[in-house]
Simulated assay, not measured.
Amino acid sequence: MTDVAVTSAEENTATLPEAGRRPIRHTLTGAITWGGLWLFVGGLLLAVATVLLASLTAQLAEGWLPRTYTTRWYAQSWATFDLGQLLVTTVEVGVAVVAVTLVVALPTAYVLARLTFPGRKLLLLLFLVPQVVPVMTYAVPLATLVYRLRLNDTLAGIVLVNLVPAIPFAVLVLIPFVEQIDPRVEQAARVCGATNRRVFVHILGPLLVPGLLAAGVLTLVRVVGQFELTFLVSGPDSQTLVVALYGAAVQAGELASQEINAMAVVYMLTTLVLLLVALRFVDPTSVAARDRRSGR
């Protein structure tokens, strides 16, 4: 009798799905979702491969693959467009925007995360506006202001216009990081005699390093890819890489297309490196989990 019970239990266990695994269900919605995802990835990789191959071809020819390969277009593009200076300008603008953004966004995020006051939700909604509305809706008024201040074609003017979307974005990124810190940690430090400055610098600062890295790197990625705001206020001496790439594409009839494609590859590699660095410090799923926990 015991052997029969053991055998029956083993059979039932074998038929049960493994713990923690869900049976795979094929649905129309899943097929459309995955199909659209792979179609998007395939189209993106095809576009990147097309630009890369075009930058390596010695002479334009019919067909997808070039007959001969060369890297001379990269050296020629570097000399023609002065890519070294463009990269320096791009880095200067990005670092300046990130520095000012973090200085302003950190205390703002702390206040919004710790305090409840009338108009808080409205203020958060206003911070969302630059992230959801088309950039050109506020780019033209900002550019007009910069021209009136005579800051056009200067790094200060470019940094100023890029701060408008960057600061609200960094605030929204930092708020969940502040909310996950237990307020009792600050209270215990104050009970031990720590001043507000020491609490902020020695207690909150180290705990917020992951959030500061996340906000800083993501802001840098956005600034490097920001075209409209930078284009409207930059000039020949203050162009960033993306603005210069647009100018080169406009002159496609005057310049060899391989040079423009080589410049595009440099821009793509720059952006890709920044994205990889961002993913090294930022896990989108963990940020979303923090946001869900803070909303409870």
Rank of each mutant, 00 (worst) to 15 (best):
D3L: 11
A5N: 15
A5V: 14
V6D: 13
S8L: 14
E10S: 11
T13M: 13
A14D: 09
A14R: 14
P17F: 00
P17G: 03
T27D: 04
I32P: 02
G35T: 12
G36A: 15
W38G: 08
V41A: 14
A49H: 12
A49R: 06
V51K: 01
L52N: 00
A54M: 05
T57N: 13
Q59C: 06
Q59V: 11
E62C: 03
T68K: 10
T71Y: 07
Q76L: 12
W78Q: 03
A79D: 14
Q85F: 12
V88G: 04
T89P: 01
E92Y: 13
A99P: 06
V103H: 03
L112W: 00
A113L: 00
R114K: 15
F117V: 05
R120M: 06
L122E: 13
L123P: 05
V132N: 07
V133A: 11
G157Y: 00
L160Y: 04
L160M: 13
V164W: 01
V164M: 06
P165T: 06
A189F: 01
R190P: 01
A194D: 12
R198L: 11
F200P: 02
V201C: 08
G205I: 01
P206T: 08
L207Q: 08
P210K: 01
P210L: 09
L212V: 01
T219N: 07
L220Y: 04
V224E: 05
F231G: 01
L232T: 01
L232Q: 05
S234Q: 05
G235S: 08
A244F: 09
Y246H: 11
A252D: 02
E254S: 14
Q258H: 03
N261H: 10
M268G: 05
M268A: 14
L269R: 02
V273M: 07
L276I: 13
R280N: 12
T285S: 04
S286K: 14
A288R: 04
R290C: 08
R293I: 15
